[in-house]
């Protein structure tokens, strides 16, 4: 049988153990395009649609755990309270039809430099859970999971089963630039977390490097400048934060934009997003 339709995780892992070359299918929004465009010729498919456990999320005081096949639409509608920045990012993905299908595990597995949820996940210090029949479960920080553009540390017999996000208090904002008002691949994207629990600002930047990037120097400097009681920040420090984020970007020029614009834009987005998180 060239297609396996397991109804539980164990079943899926078993197939992957036997046929490590199998293509894993979740929402289909990337995999099917690769087939249509002749970038992938499937010989064996493991479809995850029937595994209910992968579509669940759990909220504990410390951690938000998102099953791998939670869709963007679920995030947008069901997780707006627990993960506001992720919900904002999810709403910018494709069209309603795509958001009904595409999954967070798929966004991780594809590991596009433009992956819309990745900046937020990186800023939140998320960990990816990988599971195999042979070796059980391991957790990788996102930065270790993504090894390059469209490359990950997932072994052939592993499944992305969930992503775990440490919970922090404080405002968040995600902003994404595309040359159209809907349905665009990100040209530049940021997720800014004003983490009042740890009194640090964190930023994840997308489409300005081989994978999502942090700007640690910028984060450290602006975290110092913020009045954490009032949640205010001098305008000069916000401007400096934007410039430092732009400095930390490693953008390229391609058919979607130029390196120069991406660097500029990510700085503007960083400053604006921070401003929106703070009290005027």
């Amino acid at each position: 049988m060239p297609i396996s339709r397991p109804t539980d995780l164990a079943g899926a892992l078993e197939v992957l153990a036997e046929v490590p070359t199998a293509d894993v299918l979740a929402g289909g929004t990337d995999a099917m395009v690769e087939i249509s465009f002749d970038h992938r010729r499937p010989e064996h498919v493991v479809a995850l649609r029937r595994i209910d456990a992968l579509r669940e999320h759990r909220v504990s005081p410390a951690v938000l755990e998102l099953g791998a096949t939670i869709t963007y639409m679920q995030i947008e509608t069901e997780l707006a309270e627990h993960a506001p920045g992720l919900a904002m990012a999810s709403r910018t993905v494709g069209s309603p039809q795509i958001r009904n299908a595409g999954t967070i595990g798929g966004n991780l597995g594809t590991a596009s430099p433009a992956g819309d949820t990745l900046p937020w996940l990186l800023a939140m210090d998320a960990e990816v859970e990988l599971t195999s029949a042979a070796r059980g479960t391991r957790h990788l920080p996102l930065a270790a999971f993504i090894t390059g553009p469209k490359r990950t540390a997932r072994e052939a017999d592993e499944l992305i089963t969930s992503v775990r996000v440490p919970r922090v208090e404080g405002p968040q904002h995600t902003a994404k630039i595309g040359p159209r008002n809907a349905m665009v691949i990100s040209v530049a994207c940021v997720a800014v977390i004003v983490d009042t629990t740890n009194r640090v600002v964190r930023i994840g930047m997308g489409s300005v490097g081989p994978g999502p990037l942090r700007a640690t120097d910028a984060e450290a400097a602006v975290s110092e400048a913020i009045d954490w009681e009032a949640l205010r920040c001098p305008e000069a420090a916000i401007g400096a934060f934007g410039r430092a984020c732009a400095e930390a970007a490693r953008p390229i020029t391609d058919h979607r934009s130029t390196a120069e614009y991406r660097r500029h834009a990510v700085g503007v987005l960083a400053a604006r997003s921070l401003r929106r998180c703070l009290n005027a």
Binding site: R5, L25, G28, T29, M32, P96, A101
Partner: peptide, 13 residues
């Protein structure tokens, strides 16, 4: 009952 693009659905699934 969910609106999808059928080009992104594997028929066998």
């Amino acid at each position: 009952g969910v609106l999808l693009n059928s080009c992104c659905v594997l028929a066998a699934d």
